[in-house]
Computed example of a mutant assay.
Amino acid sequence: MAWLAAGEGYEIALVEGRVAARSASGRAAGRQLKTLPKALKDHPEVDRLRRLADWLDRHEASCVAQVDAWMVSSLPVPTALIARVWPDEAWQRALRDLAVVGEDPQEAGFLRDATATGELKVVNLDGETVRLSPRTVLLPHPVLLPDLEDVRDFAAELGIEQRVEQIHRPTWQKPAGLAESATEVRDYAGGSFPTRFSLAARATALGYRVSGGYATCKVRDGAGRATEAAVWIGEPYYDDETSTGALNWHDEDGRAVRLAEVGPVAWSEGMRMAAALYAGRTIEEGGDA
Protein backbone atom coordinates (compact mmCIF):
# COMPACT_ATOMS: atom_id res chain seq x y z
CA MET A 1 0.00 0.00 0.00
CA ALA A 2 1.24 3.53 -0.83
CA TRP A 3 2.52 5.77 1.94
CA LEU A 4 0.25 8.72 2.81
CA ALA A 5 1.24 12.10 4.20
CA ALA A 6 0.13 12.55 7.82
CA GLY A 7 1.13 15.64 9.76
CA GLU A 8 4.45 17.36 9.48
CA GLY A 9 7.34 15.10 8.71
CA TYR A 10 5.51 11.73 8.71
CA GLU A 11 3.96 9.27 6.31
CA ILE A 12 1.73 6.35 7.21
CA ALA A 13 0.63 3.09 5.57
CA LEU A 14 -0.83 -0.31 6.43
CA VAL A 15 2.03 -2.75 6.92
CA GLU A 16 1.13 -6.37 7.71
CA GLY A 17 -2.32 -5.31 8.88
CA ARG A 18 -1.33 -2.48 11.22
CA VAL A 19 -0.74 1.25 10.85
CA ALA A 20 2.96 2.03 10.51
CA ALA A 21 4.74 5.37 10.21
CA ARG A 22 7.99 6.57 8.72
CA SER A 23 9.89 9.83 8.65
CA ALA A 24 9.33 11.93 5.55
CA SER A 25 12.16 14.40 6.04
CA GLY A 26 15.59 14.77 7.53
CA ARG A 27 18.32 12.20 7.81
CA ALA A 28 15.82 9.46 8.79
CA ALA A 29 13.59 10.01 5.74
CA GLY A 30 12.09 6.75 4.48
CA ARG A 31 12.97 4.82 7.63
CA GLN A 32 10.00 2.99 9.19
CA LEU A 33 9.52 3.75 12.89
CA LYS A 34 9.13 0.97 15.45
CA THR A 35 6.12 2.64 17.06
CA LEU A 36 3.53 5.21 16.03
CA PRO A 37 4.56 8.71 17.20
CA LYS A 38 2.29 10.35 19.79
CA ALA A 39 1.65 13.21 17.36
CA LEU A 40 -0.15 10.75 15.05
CA LYS A 41 -2.27 8.87 17.60
CA ASP A 42 -5.41 10.90 16.88
CA HIS A 43 -4.67 11.92 13.32
CA PRO A 44 -7.70 11.48 10.98
CA GLU A 45 -5.66 9.54 8.42
CA VAL A 46 -4.48 7.12 11.11
CA ASP A 47 -8.07 6.56 12.22
CA ARG A 48 -9.11 5.97 8.62
CA LEU A 49 -6.39 3.38 8.11
CA ARG A 50 -7.31 1.61 11.35
CA ARG A 51 -10.91 1.35 10.22
CA LEU A 52 -9.72 0.04 6.85
CA ALA A 53 -7.58 -2.58 8.61
CA ASP A 54 -10.59 -3.70 10.66
CA TRP A 55 -12.67 -4.00 7.50
CA LEU A 56 -9.95 -6.01 5.75
CA ASP A 57 -9.79 -8.41 8.72
CA ARG A 58 -13.57 -8.91 8.62
CA HIS A 59 -13.48 -9.36 4.84
CA GLU A 60 -10.77 -12.00 5.05
CA ALA A 61 -12.68 -13.85 7.78
CA SER A 62 -15.85 -13.80 5.68
CA CYS A 63 -13.99 -15.19 2.64
CA VAL A 64 -12.59 -18.05 4.72
CA ALA A 65 -16.04 -18.76 6.20
CA GLN A 66 -17.66 -18.82 2.75
CA VAL A 67 -15.07 -21.17 1.27
CA ASP A 68 -15.38 -23.42 4.31
CA ALA A 69 -19.17 -23.46 3.83
CA TRP A 70 -18.75 -24.47 0.18
CA MET A 71 -16.54 -27.35 1.25
CA VAL A 72 -18.68 -28.77 4.06
CA SER A 73 -21.87 -28.34 2.01
CA SER A 74 -20.66 -30.19 -1.10
CA LEU A 75 -21.81 -27.25 -3.22
CA PRO A 76 -20.61 -27.00 -6.85
CA VAL A 77 -18.89 -23.64 -7.27
CA PRO A 78 -18.99 -21.91 -10.69
CA THR A 79 -15.50 -21.65 -12.17
CA ALA A 80 -16.39 -18.19 -13.43
CA LEU A 81 -17.05 -17.09 -9.85
CA ILE A 82 -13.62 -18.29 -8.70
CA ALA A 83 -12.01 -16.46 -11.61
CA ARG A 84 -13.91 -13.27 -10.75
CA VAL A 85 -12.92 -13.16 -7.08
CA TRP A 86 -9.35 -14.45 -7.56
CA PRO A 87 -7.74 -10.97 -7.99
CA ASP A 88 -8.92 -10.12 -4.46
CA GLU A 89 -6.03 -11.18 -2.20
CA ALA A 90 -8.35 -12.23 0.64
CA TRP A 91 -10.30 -14.58 -1.65
CA GLN A 92 -7.06 -15.81 -3.19
CA ARG A 93 -5.59 -16.72 0.19
CA ALA A 94 -8.79 -18.59 1.12
CA LEU A 95 -8.88 -20.56 -2.16
CA ARG A 96 -5.21 -21.15 -3.00
CA ASP A 97 -3.97 -24.74 -2.64
CA LEU A 98 -7.41 -26.20 -1.92
CA ALA A 99 -8.08 -29.57 -3.47
CA VAL A 100 -10.63 -29.15 -6.28
CA VAL A 101 -12.45 -31.68 -8.46
CA GLY A 102 -13.82 -30.84 -11.91
CA GLU A 103 -16.84 -32.32 -13.64
CA ASP A 104 -14.71 -35.38 -14.46
CA PRO A 105 -13.69 -37.07 -11.17
CA GLN A 106 -10.24 -37.55 -12.69
CA GLU A 107 -9.87 -33.75 -12.90
CA ALA A 108 -8.53 -33.30 -9.39
CA GLY A 109 -5.67 -31.29 -8.00
CA PHE A 110 -4.55 -28.39 -5.86
CA LEU A 111 -5.69 -24.95 -7.03
CA ARG A 112 -2.79 -22.62 -7.79
CA ASP A 113 -4.23 -19.92 -10.05
CA ALA A 114 -7.35 -18.74 -11.89
CA THR A 115 -7.34 -16.72 -15.10
CA ALA A 116 -9.75 -13.99 -16.14
CA THR A 117 -11.06 -16.31 -18.88
CA GLY A 118 -12.20 -18.90 -16.33
CA GLU A 119 -9.33 -21.38 -16.54
CA LEU A 120 -8.02 -22.94 -13.35
CA LYS A 121 -4.38 -23.91 -12.96
CA VAL A 122 -4.02 -26.93 -10.69
CA VAL A 123 -1.26 -29.30 -9.69
CA ASN A 124 -2.78 -32.72 -10.27
CA LEU A 125 -2.05 -35.81 -8.22
CA ASP A 126 0.69 -36.79 -10.69
CA GLY A 127 2.55 -33.59 -9.84
CA GLU A 128 1.82 -31.93 -13.18
CA THR A 129 0.47 -28.40 -13.57
CA VAL A 130 -2.60 -28.54 -15.82
CA ARG A 131 -5.35 -26.15 -16.92
CA LEU A 132 -8.99 -26.97 -16.27
CA SER A 133 -12.07 -25.13 -17.49
CA PRO A 134 -15.10 -27.02 -16.14
CA ARG A 135 -18.34 -25.13 -15.64
CA THR A 136 -18.22 -25.88 -11.91
CA VAL A 137 -15.83 -27.46 -9.43
CA LEU A 138 -16.24 -29.10 -6.07
CA LEU A 139 -14.10 -28.31 -3.04
CA PRO A 140 -14.48 -31.79 -1.56
CA HIS A 141 -14.72 -32.46 2.14
CA PRO A 142 -11.73 -34.66 3.08
CA VAL A 143 -13.98 -37.50 4.28
CA LEU A 144 -15.05 -37.86 0.62
CA LEU A 145 -11.50 -38.00 -0.76
CA PRO A 146 -10.30 -41.50 -1.65
CA ASP A 147 -6.80 -42.34 -0.43
CA LEU A 148 -6.79 -39.33 1.90
CA GLU A 149 -3.53 -40.29 3.59
CA ASP A 150 -1.78 -40.49 0.20
CA VAL A 151 -3.19 -37.05 -0.70
CA ARG A 152 -1.87 -35.67 2.59
CA ASP A 153 1.59 -37.13 1.97
CA PHE A 154 1.65 -35.67 -1.55
CA ALA A 155 0.55 -32.27 -0.24
CA ALA A 156 3.40 -32.35 2.28
CA GLU A 157 5.86 -33.04 -0.55
CA LEU A 158 4.51 -29.99 -2.43
CA GLY A 159 4.64 -27.79 0.65
CA ILE A 160 0.88 -27.17 0.46
CA GLU A 161 -0.46 -24.76 3.09
CA GLN A 162 -4.22 -24.20 3.20
CA ARG A 163 -5.89 -21.16 4.74
CA VAL A 164 -9.14 -23.15 4.93
CA GLU A 165 -8.65 -26.42 6.78
CA GLN A 166 -9.41 -29.14 4.25
CA ILE A 167 -7.04 -32.05 3.68
CA HIS A 168 -5.71 -31.95 7.26
CA ARG A 169 -9.17 -31.44 8.75
CA PRO A 170 -9.89 -34.14 11.37
CA THR A 171 -12.38 -36.66 9.98
CA TRP A 172 -14.58 -39.37 11.46
CA GLN A 173 -15.89 -42.33 9.48
CA LYS A 174 -19.32 -43.64 10.44
CA PRO A 175 -18.93 -47.11 11.95
CA ALA A 176 -20.74 -50.10 10.54
CA GLY A 177 -23.33 -52.04 12.50
CA LEU A 178 -25.18 -49.11 14.07
CA ALA A 179 -28.49 -50.01 15.69
CA GLU A 180 -31.35 -49.33 13.27
CA SER A 181 -33.25 -47.18 15.77
CA ALA A 182 -30.24 -45.31 17.26
CA THR A 183 -30.40 -41.49 17.02
CA GLU A 184 -27.57 -40.26 19.29
CA VAL A 185 -23.86 -40.65 19.93
CA ARG A 186 -22.41 -40.30 23.42
CA ASP A 187 -18.68 -40.67 22.66
CA TYR A 188 -18.05 -37.09 23.78
CA ALA A 189 -20.76 -36.71 26.42
CA GLY A 190 -19.88 -35.97 30.02
CA GLY A 191 -17.20 -33.31 29.50
CA SER A 192 -17.49 -31.05 32.57
CA PHE A 193 -17.37 -27.24 32.41
CA PRO A 194 -17.49 -24.80 35.35
CA THR A 195 -20.52 -22.98 33.89
CA ARG A 196 -22.91 -23.29 31.00
CA PHE A 197 -21.68 -19.87 29.85
CA SER A 198 -18.09 -21.14 29.53
CA LEU A 199 -19.21 -24.08 27.37
CA ALA A 200 -21.39 -21.83 25.20
CA ALA A 201 -18.49 -19.39 24.83
CA ARG A 202 -16.22 -22.21 23.69
CA ALA A 203 -18.78 -23.28 21.09
CA THR A 204 -19.08 -19.73 19.76
CA ALA A 205 -15.30 -19.25 19.67
CA LEU A 206 -14.99 -22.44 17.61
CA GLY A 207 -17.46 -21.01 15.08
CA TYR A 208 -20.54 -22.99 16.08
CA ARG A 209 -24.03 -21.59 16.59
CA VAL A 210 -25.60 -21.73 20.03
CA SER A 211 -29.38 -22.08 19.97
CA GLY A 212 -31.37 -22.81 23.09
CA GLY A 213 -29.59 -25.58 24.96
CA TYR A 214 -27.54 -26.77 21.98
CA ALA A 215 -24.38 -26.05 20.02
CA THR A 216 -25.14 -26.73 16.37
CA CYS A 217 -23.63 -26.92 12.91
CA LYS A 218 -25.47 -27.33 9.61
CA VAL A 219 -24.27 -29.35 6.65
CA ARG A 220 -25.78 -29.82 3.18
CA ASP A 221 -25.13 -32.99 1.23
CA GLY A 222 -24.64 -33.27 -2.52
CA ALA A 223 -28.42 -33.45 -3.08
CA GLY A 224 -28.93 -30.15 -1.26
CA ARG A 225 -30.52 -31.68 1.84
CA ALA A 226 -29.67 -29.94 5.09
CA THR A 227 -28.80 -31.83 8.25
CA GLU A 228 -28.04 -30.10 11.54
CA ALA A 229 -25.79 -31.70 14.12
CA ALA A 230 -26.49 -30.68 17.72
CA VAL A 231 -24.72 -31.23 21.05
CA TRP A 232 -26.55 -30.53 24.30
CA ILE A 233 -24.70 -27.91 26.38
CA GLY A 234 -27.25 -27.10 29.10
CA GLU A 235 -30.31 -24.99 29.70
CA PRO A 236 -29.99 -21.31 28.72
CA TYR A 237 -29.39 -18.95 31.65
CA TYR A 238 -28.30 -21.92 33.79
CA ASP A 239 -25.01 -20.75 35.22
CA ASP A 240 -23.88 -23.67 37.38
CA GLU A 241 -21.55 -26.49 36.38
CA THR A 242 -22.64 -28.27 33.21
CA SER A 243 -21.51 -31.10 30.94
CA THR A 244 -21.58 -31.87 27.26
CA GLY A 245 -24.50 -34.09 26.31
CA ALA A 246 -25.28 -36.44 23.47
CA LEU A 247 -24.73 -35.64 19.80
CA ASN A 248 -27.66 -36.07 17.42
CA TRP A 249 -28.79 -34.91 14.00
CA HIS A 250 -32.02 -33.32 12.76
CA ASP A 251 -33.48 -32.69 9.32
CA GLU A 252 -34.82 -29.35 8.04
CA ASP A 253 -38.16 -29.99 9.75
CA GLY A 254 -36.52 -30.63 13.11
CA ARG A 255 -37.09 -34.39 13.03
CA ALA A 256 -34.41 -36.66 14.52
CA VAL A 257 -32.34 -38.45 11.89
CA ARG A 258 -31.41 -42.05 12.60
CA LEU A 259 -27.66 -42.60 12.72
CA ALA A 260 -27.83 -45.08 9.86
CA GLU A 261 -29.21 -42.29 7.64
CA VAL A 262 -26.66 -39.58 8.53
CA GLY A 263 -24.44 -38.77 5.55
CA PRO A 264 -20.62 -39.06 5.72
CA VAL A 265 -19.93 -35.30 5.82
CA ALA A 266 -22.68 -34.59 8.37
CA TRP A 267 -21.36 -37.44 10.53
CA SER A 268 -17.76 -36.24 10.36
CA GLU A 269 -18.62 -32.59 11.03
CA GLY A 270 -20.94 -33.47 13.92
CA MET A 271 -18.29 -35.64 15.54
CA ARG A 272 -15.69 -32.93 14.94
CA MET A 273 -17.88 -30.41 16.77
CA ALA A 274 -18.56 -32.78 19.67
CA ALA A 275 -14.86 -33.64 20.02
CA ALA A 276 -13.81 -29.98 19.90
CA LEU A 277 -16.26 -29.04 22.65
CA TYR A 278 -15.25 -32.02 24.79
CA ALA A 279 -11.55 -31.12 24.44
CA GLY A 280 -12.13 -27.96 26.50
CA ARG A 281 -13.50 -29.86 29.52
CA THR A 282 -12.17 -29.50 33.05
CA ILE A 283 -9.45 -32.09 33.68
CA GLU A 284 -9.13 -33.23 37.26
CA GLU A 285 -5.64 -33.55 38.67
CA GLY A 286 -4.27 -35.52 41.54
CA GLY A 287 -4.59 -39.06 42.86
CA ASP A 288 -8.39 -39.11 42.71
CA ALA A 289 -8.59 -37.81 39.11
Score class of each variant (00 low, 15 high):
E161W: 06
E107G: 04
V101Y: 09
L36F: 03
L52R: 11
G118E: 00
R163E: 13
V262H: 04
L111V: 01
G109N: 01
S192P: 13
L259T: 06
R258Y: 12
A246I: 02
A65F: 09
R225C: 11
R163K: 15
P44S: 05
G234C: 01
D88S: 13
R51N: 13
T216Q: 12
L120K: 01
M273S: 08
E284F: 09
A176L: 13
A80R: 11
L111R: 00
K34E: 13
V219T: 00
L277C: 12
M273P: 02
A28F: 14
V151Y: 12
A156I: 09
P264H: 05
S181T: 15
D126I: 08
E8C: 06
G280L: 07
Q66M: 13
D57W: 09
S73M: 05
E285N: 14
V123R: 15
A114M: 00
A6I: 04
L56R: 14
R272D: 00
P78A: 02
D104G: 03
A20P: 03
A13M: 05
G102H: 01
A69E: 04
V262M: 05
T35I: 12
Q32V: 15
V85R: 11
D150V: 14
E184M: 11
L158G: 04
G191P: 00
Y214M: 10
E89A: 15
G17E: 00
H43V: 04
R48M: 06
R112E: 15
F154H: 04
E252G: 11
Y238G: 10
S133A: 15
G224A: 02
V19F: 00
R258S: 08
A156N: 13
P78R: 05
A176D: 14
L206G: 05
P76I: 06
K174F: 02
T136D: 14
Q173D: 12
L40G: 04
G17I: 02
G234A: 03
Y208I: 05
A90E: 09
E184V: 10
V210Y: 08
P78Y: 05
V72C: 07
W232A: 12
W3M: 03
L277P: 11
D240Y: 14
T227R: 09
E285W: 14
V219Q: 04
V19E: 02
E184S: 14
R131L: 13
G270E: 04
A21E: 01
R202C: 07
D113T: 06
A80P: 10
G212R: 00
W3Y: 06
E60D: 15
V143H: 03
P87W: 00
P142C: 10
D153R: 12
V265D: 06
L4S: 10
R96H: 15
V101F: 11
E89Q: 14
V123T: 15
G102K: 01
L139T: 01
D147V: 12
